[in-house]
Computed example of a mutant assay.
Amino acid sequence: MTGLIEQPANFPSLNGKVVFVTGGGSGIGESIVTHLCQQQAKVTFVDIAEAASQAVCDRIAEAGHARPDFIKCDLRNIDELRQAIAATAAKHGPIRVLVNNAGNDDRHKSEDVTPEYWDDRMAVNIRHQFFAAQAVRPMMRDAGGGSIINFGSITWLVGDGDCPGYVTSKAAITGMTRALAREFGPERIRVNCVLPGWVMTERQVKLWLDEAGERQINDRQCLKDKLFPADIARMVLFLAADDSRMCASQNFIVDGGWV
């Protein structure tokens, strides 16, 4: 299985909508970009991996969908991020959907964490989400509203013990989401958070899916099928579309029922 379904939902309100996605060059982000292009949205994504991202653009175009725009960007550099957002709006018009997908869950132990590494985890996982939201807010407000979709993780809900910097940053994203939803809501900007479970990206399978991992999925997920990037992308489509117009300040958990 790949998480694909025979007749995925169509969201007419996404047709022609300008969307900005972070971390779209692989994994969950690649699936989000692909699904949005299938909905005929105008998609721009940023990523640090240039070759992989260009390959994503090629695959989407070869499948007969509008080619997304790719801008190389290190999200730790907020000026680069702001420039990419400004360039997107200048080319396509106001961004109406922001998908703050990018992050990194490298494993680490508390005793090995330095102040520099800690700051880098915050920069990689949460800081850019805030500043991207800050940058798109005026154009969403002036266009009549929009949707900001942040990415958290179930790791902070279950208390994973092998990456405390990552877990801390993902917990903070929920707090940030609720604060921004309250502040931006009067401007018809919806802010929500997606919390994926253990998604079978190429990276996850290569690094961590072994026999013990298979047993953990079977023991801890209510649904025994593996979770794939497409399963997350379809939740993003709903939150990006007008169908979710009264959803705000919420965590949307897609984890197969991880307990």
Rank of each mutant, 00 (worst) to 15 (best):
I28V: 06
K17P: 03
I5M: 02
R203W: 08
W118F: 13
V194W: 01
A52C: 05
S31R: 10
M1F: 11
K206F: 04
M122D: 04
Y117S: 10
E30W: 04
V254G: 07
L209T: 05
S26N: 11
E30I: 00
L227E: 10
M235Q: 13
L157T: 04
L227K: 09
L227P: 00
E187Q: 11
R59A: 10
W258A: 06
S244C: 03
P8R: 04
S249A: 12
E6F: 13
G3C: 02
T88S: 14
D47H: 13
L14M: 01
L239G: 07
G144L: 07
P196T: 03
D210C: 07
G145L: 02
A181T: 00
F11D: 01
A240H: 05
C73L: 01
I253C: 05
G25I: 02
K72D: 02
G3S: 02
D225E: 15
W208H: 12
G16T: 04
I85V: 15
D112K: 01
Q38R: 13
L81P: 09
V97Q: 07
L239E: 04
L14S: 01
W118V: 05
F131E: 14
K226A: 14
G161M: 12
G27S: 10
A84M: 04
L207V: 02
D119V: 04
L227A: 12
G161S: 12
E50H: 10
K91L: 10
K17C: 09
M139S: 13
Q216C: 05
R203P: 01
P8H: 03
D231M: 06
M140P: 08
E116G: 06
W198V: 11
V236T: 05
A51H: 04
L237G: 03
W258L: 15
E202D: 15
D58G: 02
G27M: 08
G197S: 04
Q250N: 06
A181M: 00
D119Y: 06
Q39W: 03
V99I: 13
W258H: 12
R182D: 05
M139F: 03
D120N: 07
